[in-house]
Each structure stands twice: as C-alpha cells, then as structure tokens.
C-alpha cells in the first residue's frame, strides 16, 4: 500500500471542501481522480502533498503518517507535477530537471556530480535529450510536461502526483504524456492524477476515484466507474457511455450532441 488516505476532511475557514475521503493507491498503480470543477481534487492533492496542514483524518505514504513530516522528508516520498505554467524566469530544461534533486543536498549547498547524473538519466529516460539546453519557456506544452516528469524522476520519490497533466496539450501530446506516465506506473511508481477526461482514464488508468461534493462517489476499476449512470451523476449532464472494441475502449458521448439534427 503506497498511499492510504483515511477519513480525510478539510474545510477552508468554515466552508467544507473534503468530507471523509478514504482511498488507497497501491504501488505500481495509476490512479485517476475524476470530478467536476471545484469538487475538491486540488484540495485533496494539496493535503496529500503536505501543502495544507489543517486536515482531519490521516494520510499515509509508504507506511509513514505524513502529517508532521518536513518538506524535505516529504520530497523524498512524493513528487508533484503541477499544471503547466510559465515560470518567471526562463531556466534551461536541464536546470529545471536538476531542481528536482534539491531535497538531496544541504540547504547551503548545491547539486553536485551525483545529482547532475540523476538529472541527466531522467532526461534520457523521458527521451528529451535534444531539449537539454533549450529554455523551458520556449518549448512546447508536451515537452514541458515531459520535463516536469523528468524532474519528478530526478527527485527520486516513488509517488507521483499530477494535476491535470494533459490539460492544454494537443491530442497527440496527451497520448504521449499519458503513455509515459502509464509506463512509469508499470515500472513501480505510484501515480495519482487529476483529470477531466474519463475516456482516457479508461484507457490508461488502473483505478479511478470519482469525487462529488467533496465525497467519494465511487472508486474502483475503470470498467466499474466509467458507466452511464456514474458519469451522469458526476458531471450533471446526460451522457451515453459506449463500449468499443470488445470493451477495451469506452467513450463518453454527451446526449445533447447526438440529438442535435445533422447539419
């Protein structure tokens, strides 16, 4: 059991956001968190990452209650891949990846040969060696996401938390990035991602956690979760879930679009 969340509740001031959320993410599993905007996915991640402290319940990462861990201790266990954004300064891809190793060196020191080798390996592993000296702000969205994943690998943590890793990516890059993440899970990383694309969770994930109004609506394997009823409840619109290719693919189709007259 890599990540265990038990009865997690969190409120901003008096507004409750998460209400008794419990789930387990096993080692080597790719867990997707589905839910409408504002349902508490980000809050859940922020709690797991140790960015929000005033929660009730408990969070265990690799057999350790993480509530009182220092940022450095947390960084050894969990790596965070935020939504793509423009950093204030245009660092090179290599420097960006090297920053992942910060938790391994003393505060008044800087990454040495060992850390540089780690960053170099991570870059090779993600197949972005050609981007080595390019500016992070000048590469494409897909390349940035791969760079961020490389940074997470250089961090040497075995739990990866990704906040909508495929948001703002074109279709091809979405598949490339998800395949990379998928293969990392197969190599033994525990992956938890937030996403708004149920079709892709069916294709790439092992487990799905469906959140609604701060509670767990359902959790289980993709074939259990990606169903007409659940999707309709989750997103509040009429959805038809179609199964294709002997149920190896499922597609969510908004009914309003089907009923529209053909143009």
């Amino acid at each position: 059991m890599s990540v265990i969340v038990e009865n997690l509740s969190f409120a901003y001031d008096s507004r409750p956001v998460l209400d008794s959320v419990s789930f387990v993410a096993e080692r080597g599993h790719f867990l997707s968190v589905l839910g409408a905007n504002g349902v508490g996915k980000s809050t859940l991640f922020r709690c797991i990452l140790g960015l929000l402290k005033g929660y009730r319940g408990s969070i265990w990462v690799e057999d350790q209650d993480v509530r009182h861990l220092s940022p450095r201790e947390m960084a050894k266990r969990i790596a965070y891949i935020p939504q793509s954004h423009d950093p204030s300064f245009n660092y090179t891809v290599f420097d960006m990846v090297l920053m992942g190793t910060t938790g391994q060196v003393a505060a008044v020191s800087s990454p040495g040969k060992k850390q540089m080798a780690l960053a170099e390996q991570a870059i090779e592993r993600l197949g972005i060696t050609a981007l080595h000296n390019r500016g992070f702000n000048q590469i494409s969205g897909g390349e940035r996401q791969l760079t961020m994943i490389a940074r997470a690998l250089a961090q040497n943590a075995h739990v990866l938390i990704l906040d909508e890793p495929t948001a703002n990516l074109d279709f091809g890059n979405q598949i490339k990035v998800l395949s990379r993440i998928r293969s990392l899970a197969e190599e033994g990383y525990t992956v938890i991602q937030a996403t708004h694309n149920p079709d892709q969770t069916f294709l790439f994930s092992d487990r799905i956690l469906a959140l609604k109004d701060g509670r767990v609506l359902a959790s289980g394997s993709p074939s259990e979760i990606v169903s007409t009823d659940l999707m309709q409840t989750l997103y509040g619109v009429d959805i038809a879930v179609q199964s294709l290719y002997d149920d190896t693919v499922r597609v969510c189709i908004p009914k309003a679009a089907i009923q529209r007259p053909v143009r």
Partner: peptide
C-alpha cells in the same frame, strides 16, 4: 522562483 507550492514539494522550507 517556481512558486510556493512547487518549492515546498521540492523539499524547501519556503
């Protein structure tokens, strides 16, 4: 320079 959340998850007491 990466921002508070990222800095902290990289192991910094920001």
């Amino acid at each position: 320079t990466l921002g508070d959340d990222e800095a902290q998850t990289l192991g910094i007491n920001n």
